[in-house]
Amino acid sequence: METRKMLKGCVGCKACEMACSMHHTDGFGFRHSSIEIQWEKEGYSIAFKDPMTCDTCEGEGENNYQCVKYCYRAKDALKAFILNTEEGGEA
C-alpha cells in the first residue's frame, strides 16, 4: 500500500524524479523513477511507487541519494523520507 508523506519545502519541480530515473536508466523519464511527487492542498507529497524499485542509489556511493543530491528546496525532508525517519508528516 502506498504511503504518502508531505514533503516540507517541496515546490514540485520533480528534479528528484528525474535524478532517480537517471540512476536507474542513465536517461530521463518520470516513468522510470522509484518515487512520485504529487500536489496536495497543503503542498507536495512523496511516495514510493509500487512495486518498490528504490535501491537507495546502490552504486552511487555511500549515502549519495541522487534525489536528495539534486533537490534544491526540500533536501532534509526528502532524505528523511528515503531513510524513513521522522521529518515530514503523513499525507
Binding site: 519541480c13 528534479a15 524524479e17 528525474m18 530521463f28 541522487q66 539534486y70
Partner: peptide, 12 residues
C-alpha cells in the same frame, strides 16, 4: 544547472 534539474525544468 545540473542535468536532472534542467531535464525537469524543460519537462515542466
Amino acid at each position: 544547472g545540473e542535468e536532472p534539474q534542467i531535464e525537469a525544468f524543460v519537462s515542466f
